[in-house]
Amino acid sequence: MNFGGYQQQQQMQSGLNMSMAEQELEMVTTLFNNIVDSCHRKCIPPKYHDNELNKGESVCIDRCVAKYFEVNMKVGQKLTAQANQGQAMM
């Protein structure tokens, strides 16, 4: 049935859009969580002397986030370059 086919197609298209939007949201969340973890390890010493971020820790966090974004972009570019050279990866 034509109508059914059209509806199904729309649903699949819609499912595809949803899954892409979900995937994008998933990626951004994972990136954020990984940065929180990584910069906490790099910038906040596990001896807690008070409950405020001090100046050094604050500056460290700012630079850590900027650097993580830069690494994220560079690794993405390298992977894309590799993929275009046709080198398969699992």
Binding site: E26, M27, L31, N34, S38, A66, K67, Y68, N72, V75
Partner: peptide, 23 residues
């Protein structure tokens, strides 16, 4: 995507340890 995030995290962990600069 998991591999990508994992690779970024691993290489950041191993290679980036100097936070006296932003770049």
């Amino acid at each position: 995507l998991r591999l990508y995030a994992n690779l970024v995290d691993r290489c950041f962990e191993n290679c980036v340890n100097d936070f006296t600069s932003k770049a």
